[in-house]
């Protein structure tokens, strides 16, 4: 080995006895990955096969798919799906934060009630809860506000009160609240207890500590699983077709029950579900950036900075005075 190196130094320079030539790895030959090329070839063949099938199989009836994609009835179904997702998620998130705070409360009764809620609403399938709320009138024909065991002030007929939309919001939202509670609780517990102590030492109230100090930091841990929950919720709204609420799936079903074009109409629904989840995915990454401000030495801190980077990917992010 040493004998092989010595002549090379001799050949390169005149000073055979001088120090060895300095090594510069800047122009080193990169590592080879032959298996990556094999894998790429295999995937390319499979993709070609899939593409061929999508184009040539007449049962997809792509012309039917494109004909229905933009129709008004599909649009109405899509609107119901979106509206339901947003309302049920808002109900779920608000309930989730409340329940998570209750579960971490110093009062054992509050803690127990929150735990019981989560136990029940996570334990019963969402589909069962939906049907249950829809059929509430069978359990309680009338709903009223009044003094317990005493006179009633306002009375409603349950059947007129619980519309399919309200049943859907209750069924999906209350169920979501239980899941969100656990996500929020996990987030709150991941924040360093020193943060609460610092806030307390400054004389902040518990509520202020929660909303100004702990929750903003917990958001970093809450947002990613909540994104999954929103996507789950979009798909869970399709359950409401069992209570005859005309969401995207129910609308599609109504049409194919009439025309027997089952596959193309299901594809219409798939396309829309994928479009919504894709948009949400982008939205989530923006929200994540927002809540990660200060968590890293050089993450962009404002939406504006994120946009700047998105537009000009060649430039390094410039925030503060930390060189990147």
């Amino acid at each position: 080995m040493a004998r092989n190196v010595a002549p090379a130094v001799d050949a390169a320079g005149q000073r055979a006895t001088g120090p060895p030539e300095p090594v510069d790895v800047a122009h080193a030959v990169p590592e080879r990955h032959p298996m990556r090329w094999v894998a790429t070839a295999v995937v390319a063949v499979l993709a070609a096969q899939l593409g061929h099938m999508l184009v040539t199989n007449p049962n997809f009836e792509w012309d039917v798919v494109f004909r229905y994609l933009n129709t008004e009835s599909i649009g109405r179904g899509l609107w119901v799906t979106l509206k339901l997702t947003v309302i049920a998620m808002v109900v779920g998130i608000v309930l989730g934060v409340l329940l998570a705070v209750c579960r971490l409360s110093g009062n054992w009764l509050v803690r127990a009630l929150a735990a019981a809620y989560i136990w029940f609403f996570r334990g019963v399938p969402a589909l069962v809860q939906l049907i249950f709320w829809f059929n509430l009138s069978a359990l309680m024909p009338r709903v009223s506000i009044g003094i317990p065991f005493g006179p009633e002030f306002v009375v409603w007929e349950t059947n007129s009160l619980i519309t399919p939309l309200l049943a859907a919001i209750l069924g999906l939202g209350l169920n979501e609240g239980a899941y969100m509670a656990e996500i929020v609780r996990g987030g709150l517990m991941s924040v360093d207890p020193g943060q609460t102590e610092a806030a307390q030492a400054l004389g902040m109230s518990r509520t202020r500590t929660l909303f100004r100090v702990v929750l903003p930091q917990a958001m970093r841990f809450i947002v990613p699983p909540t994104g999954s929950q929103v996507i789950n919720m979009i798909k869970a709204t399709s359950l409401v077709s069992v209570i005859a609420l005309s969401d995207l799936l129910y609308t599609v079903q109504t049409i194919y029950n009439r025309t027997f074009q089952t596959i193309p109409l299901l594809l219409v629904a798939c396309v829309w579900y994928l479009v919504i989840t894709s948009i949400l995915y982008v939205g989530q990454s923006f929200i994540e950036r927002h809540y990660s401000r200060g968590s890293n030495r050089n993450t962009p801190t404002r939406f504006r900075d994120v946009l700047k980077i998105r537009r000009r990917p060649a430039l390094p992010p410039t925030t503060g005075e930390v060189p990147t």
């Binding site: 360093d192 020193g194 943060q195 102590e197 610092a198 806030a199 307390q200 030492a201 400054l202 004389g203 902040m204 109230s205 518990r206 100090v213 903003p216 930091q217 809540y291 401000r293 200060g294 968590s295």
Partner: peptide, 25 residues
């Protein structure tokens, strides 16, 4: 708790691990 917070407003504290709020400037 609310009254204790009032008392704490008159007492400053500096911690071993600083405990600054990382999400605020």
């Amino acid at each position: 708790e609310r009254r204790i917070a009032k008392t704490r407003q008159q007492i400053g504290m500096v911690f071993q691990h600083f405990n600054l709020f990382p999400h605020l400037t």
